[in-house]
Each structure stands twice: as structure tokens, then as C-alpha cells.
Nucleic acid binder design. Structure first.
Lengths: 340, 340
DNA sequence: GTCCATCGTACATAGTGTGTC
DNA sequence: GGACACACTATGTACGATGGA
């Protein structure tokens, strides 16, 4: 009834535990016949290598870590995280690795988690998202020599492989769509200022707008939550010369703002067009359904996972580039008021 | 630069590693003075016990496992799972435990995962959700003697502590609300037939309706997805004598069905009232906002986590009962057509 | 002398019971 | 008896040594 060890197998077969270890790991040094008997007894006893013992002797935890460092509120509401975790876990388990997951409510706890995981030899590497302004994580991980891959940065990073995203084309598509519908003043409700995404999107949307004659841009700050998005939208629409379309940096803010706008008598898309950066069920089920910039988060997370495994295995991994997002046009984008 | 071990500390202080171990674990057998020197050197070197070595010698992985056994589709869209994982992880980490997470696309893989985890001594116990009809999991876990807690069953289970939920009162509240609004024929779009939740809710709603004079009930089968919910709703509404309110077994089906209904010219709540079993942002942001049966999933998961830790620690844990859900009344419920 | 099968044992790290001064 | 060291536990991996053909 007790969980068997290789010693139990060795005793049952009548060989040394070294022979058992060799046989089970498919290495030389055992005859074909003995190997077969060992394997047979092993499966019959339901033996599996103790993860602790294997980790201790091989100096490999066969585990990678991810710290989700966002407010519980955002974690609960943003479908992104579950997709990320699901995509990653499937890849890892296919390669015999596990996922160690932690939540951190503040940056200090997050850094402390990496230190602890590494010192406890709990993980062989970590996967990071949401690069911040003055982000302390790359320096810490380099100092500790923790294999790490950064998911979704905009450009290479010294000493840490990145899976990078380029939002150049998607910003162009969005602005082109809106300009083609006659919009002349575009609103942009941004994410938290400390996230690098935010700066990048600001730049790309700004560039695309500047390259489009006759199109102006106004911005306001959101925080990815419903309330933050609604407040930013209200400020934009209350201005002297309000925008006729608004691009939201995530789906939650877009959806909440549409609901609020319609309560205030602003019709979507007749009075206001809406686009969401990030697609999810939210954008599909609300009415009007929201035009969104979609990409496959699960597949991207899986890709990052493979990079990290390669880095752990070989010590190096090449940067890679994520496929650009796709503009899914739904009902929330229409002609500018008085156009056409 | 290399990660320090207790031997490094012992060398630095000039004592044996046993002394270091005793000092670090706050046991007797070391003088106050030596203890302090050891602790000082330990923190200075940034020492942390190797999780593998500790697991090996203590026969404790300090980890609990959860297998999420739903389709990727449902996992992505249902906010329940992220809330569950987040609530659980926070409790576990507060007690020095980690969460091992896996996805399983089918029941066979799920069972295999428990076997593997246990044989590999990877987890000290597991937490289960979504009891099914003829569920093979309790028997397997009893056979393997894996400490396990079942989350959200309706009644006690032989040999496995459960955190049970009682939907008696919430079914009463829902039916009372609808009857009070003049509704006489209630629809119920159910979840997958193989889940025990489904049977329980069927029974409770059926009982509450039967106990309410003049109220009838019609049911149809959904599968927790958007498409499944919409199809079941269509069947109910196409019938000769369609219901005027529909209770949906989850938020996704409710929200998708409302969107579809309005496209077909069925106004909510004027023509059709809607209630969702499970609350989430979805119910809040759509218009009309959906009346829902809410409960704090994160807190419930944390509670189940504490039960499991107690079971692991002491070998026994008492069954506990979850607080009943609360009916959050929003805009999707109104008077029956022609009532009042 | 060579080759293969196999064994003994050290090692990875932390925890703990027993023995010694 | 207090303060410590030694030796052994947990399990799997891997090197070097040994035996026989």
C-alpha cells in the first residue's frame, strides 16, 4: 500500500538499485532481459520517481514559476490571465514540467517571491509579463541568474530572452478603419501609466494618427477596471470637442463604458464608436458587440513556455516575435455622426 | 554566488550541520549564543531550505493539487475558475503551501493526474470540485489514501470531508421573487446533466416551484457555453406555452441568451425576465444588467483550502457548510407581461 | 585484454535520534 | 545536564570498480 521506491523494485527483481535506475531511465548498463523485468515490476507496482528525490539529485525542479502581480480585482475580471495560465500549463505538462503559481499584491512581494523560489530551488525558471516602467525584475533575475523569459515586451532586453509583440500594424488598421468611417477626432483610454504596454500603445496610436491627415487624438488615463474606464470616458466626452470614437486599452473598460454611455443617452455606434484592445467573450456577448483587437493568448503563452524550457535546457533562447493582433470588426464601430 | 546550504552555514559558523538545523528550526540543543550567530549568518547568506530536500526528509511536499477538468472553452470564459484559484492560492501561500495546477481535458487524464501526483509525492492532498454523476474520483482517492476535500457537494461523502452548499433558500428566494412579479410559468436552463450541481438545482427549483401555488416549471438542457445556452433558450421560447422568466444555471448562458433574445425582438425584462446562477462582471456590465445569485468564490475556495490543510496536518477535518448565495436584483427581472 | 552487466557507494540537502564531553 | 557532533533517514542519479565471458 505504501508508495514504492526503486529499492522496492530492486529487491523484487533481485538487482541493485543502480540497475533499476539505469533501466528506468533508458540508459545503457543493463541487459535487455533485466531491463524488461525491471520495467514490468515497476509498472506493476505503480512506481513513479519521487519528484523531491529527483529534484534533489538532478538539481532540477521540473517546474517553472509565474507570479501574477495585479490587483485581485483585475485578475478576477480579465479573462487574459486564465487563458495565459491555461495555455502555459498545457505546454509545460506536455514537456513534463509543472507550473508554480503565485499572486502578489505589490512589487516588493513579487520580488521576494522570485528570491524565495530560487533560493528554495523550487523553480528552474520564471516567466514574466507586464513589463513596467523602471521595472526592477530584470535586474534581480539577472543578478540571481534565474532563467527567465519576458512575455510581450516591445523590444529586446539585455540578458533576458523576450517574446515580443509589435502593435505597429494593428494601430494602423484601427486608425485606418476609423478614418475611413469619417472620424476626425479619436479618443484613447489608456491603461495604467506604469505599464510599458501603455506607453507603446500610446506611441503606436499616436504615430498612426499623425500619419493620417485630418485626424486628431485625445487621451485619458484608465486603470483596466470598470470604474476607471467609465471615469476616463466621462472626462473625454465632457470635453469641449469630444472624440467620436474611443479606443480602450482593454476589453473591461470598453464594455463598461459602452454600458454607461448608453445609460447617458450616447448611442453606440451612432454617436460613439468603440474599439477594445484585447478580445474576449465580454466583447462578443454585449450589445452592441465590441470591435476588438484579438490575439490568441493561450498560444502565445505556450510559445513563451517553450522558449523558457529551451532556455532552461540549453542556457540560451532566441527572442521571438508574436503574430500581430487581428482586428475583429463587430457592431460598435460605425460612421462618424453626420458622415456619408 | 551559488545558493547556500546548511553545510555552508555550518562551515561559516564553525559548528556541525545538525546544530544549524536545530537552530534554524527553533529546537533545543543549541546555546542561545550559537543560535544567534547561526541565524545571523543564515540571513546574511540569504539561505532558504531546499524545497526538494525538505520534502524528501519530511515526506511533505507542502503543496496541494487542483485539477481543472473542464473544456478549455468553459475555463476561459467562466470567471469562476480564476476566482477559485486566486482565493485558494492566497490561503495556501499564507500557510507556506504551494498550489499545483493542472488542466485535464477528460476524466481519464484527470484520474491519471491524481495517481501520478501521489506516486511522485508531488502533493500532500488535493481539492476537488464539480462532483459528477458516478464520479470515479472519491473511490480512487480513498483507495490511494490521498487527503482530499470536496468543494461544493450537496451532502456528506464517505471518507472525504466536504464543503457543502445548500441551495434551498436561494431557490426559494428566486421563485418567490418571480411569483411576486406575477410570473406563472418559470423556465430553467440547466447545466450539463453529468454534474451533480445540475441535479441539485433541478430539485431545489422544482421543489420551490411546487410549493408555490399557481407556478409551473419547464426545463431545458444547456452546457454552460454561450451557444448551448442560446439553443436551450430558443427551444423554451419556441414552445406552445413559453415561460416568461428563465433561470440560467450560469452567467455565461444567461448573458448570451439575453443578447440573442433582444436580437429576436424579445425585450428583457418586459417580455422575458432572466436570472443567473453565479454572478460575475458579465452580469454587471451587460444591459440590462442581470439579476444573479451571488457568492464569494474566492472566500469559499480559501475555506476549502483551510479544511484541506487541516486534514493534511491532523488527518481529520470536519465537513463545513458554505454560506448560502445572495440574490442580487438588477434590471433583468420585471413584472410578468400583463401583470400589475 | 576487452566488453558488458552489474554492484557498491558517494552525492544532492535537510531533519533527527543517539552518543559524547 | 547542556551543548554539541556523528551517523542515519528520506529517494534517485551517476561514477568507478568488479566479476565473468
Amino acid at each position: 500500500m505504501k508508495r514504492p521506491t526503486i529499492i522496492d523494485i530492486a529487491r523484487a527483481v533481485g538487482v541493485s538499485k543502480a540497475a533499476v535506475s539505469y533501466a528506468l531511465n533508458g540508459r545503457g548498463g543493463v541487459s535487455q532481459e533485466t531491463r524488461e523485468r525491471i520495467l514490468e515490476v515497476a509498472t506493476q507496482l505503480g512506481w513513479r520517481a519521487s519528484s523531491a528525490a529527483r529534484a534533489l539529485s538532478s538539481d532540477r525542479a521540473a517546474t517553472v514559476g509565474v507570479v501574477l502581480a495585479r490587483s485581485p480585482e483585475v485578475l478576477r475580471t480579465e479573462p487574459f490571465f486564465m487563458q495565459f495560465v491555461a495555455g502555459l500549463e498545457q505546454t509545460l505538462s506536455a514537456h513534463g514540467f509543472s507550473l508554480q503559481l503565485a499572486l502578489a499584491s505589490d512589487p516588493v512581494t513579487e520580488l521576494e517571491t522570485y528570491r524565495r523560489w530560487w533560493a528554495e530551488r523550487r523553480v528552474d525558471g520564471v516567466l514574466l509579463t507586464d513589463l513596467r516602467v523602471d521595472d526592477p525584475r530584470p535586474a534581480l533575475l539577472r543578478e540571481l541568474r534565474v532563467p527567465a523569459v519576458f512575455f510581450g515586451t516591445e523590444r529586446p532586453m539585455a540578458g533576458i530572452p523576450v517574446l515580443w509583440v509589435d502593435e505597429h500594424d494593428i494601430a494602423d488598421s484601427a486608425v485606418a478603419l476609423l478614418a475611413g468611417l469619417g472620424h476626425r477626432r479619436i479618443g484613447h483610454v489608456q491603461g495604467p501609466a506604469q505599464l510599458r504596454h501603455t506607453a507603446r500603445r500610446e506611441r503606436e496610436v499616436g504615430r498612426a494618427a499623425a500619419e493620417t491627415p485630418g485626424v486628431g487624438l485625445v487621451r485619458d488615463q484608465g486603470d483596466y477596471t470598470e470604474d476607471g474606464g467609465v471615469a476616463a470616458t466621462a472626462r473625454l466626452l465632457d470635453a469641449a470637442d469630444p472624440p467620436t470614437p474611443i479606443i480602450f486599452d482593454n476589453d473591461v473598460m470598453a464594455v463598461a463604458s459602452v454600458a454607461r454611455a448608453e445609460e447617458l443617452g450616447v448611442r453606440v455606434p451612432a454617436d460613439l464608436s468603440v474599439l477594445a484592445w484585447d478580445d474576449s467573450m465580454l466583447c462578443r456577448v454585449v450589445r452592441p458587440a465590441i470591435t476588438a483587437f484579438s490575439h490568441d493568448v493561450g498560444a502565445a503563452a505556450a510559445r513563451a513556455g517553450v522558449m523558457l524550457l529551451e532556455l532552461i535546457e540549453t542556457g540560451v533562447a532566441d527572442d521571438a516575435r508574436l503574430q500581430q493582433r487581428e482586428l475583429i470588426r463587430r457592431e460598435s464601430t460605425g460612421a462618424a455622426p453626420g458622415f456619408g
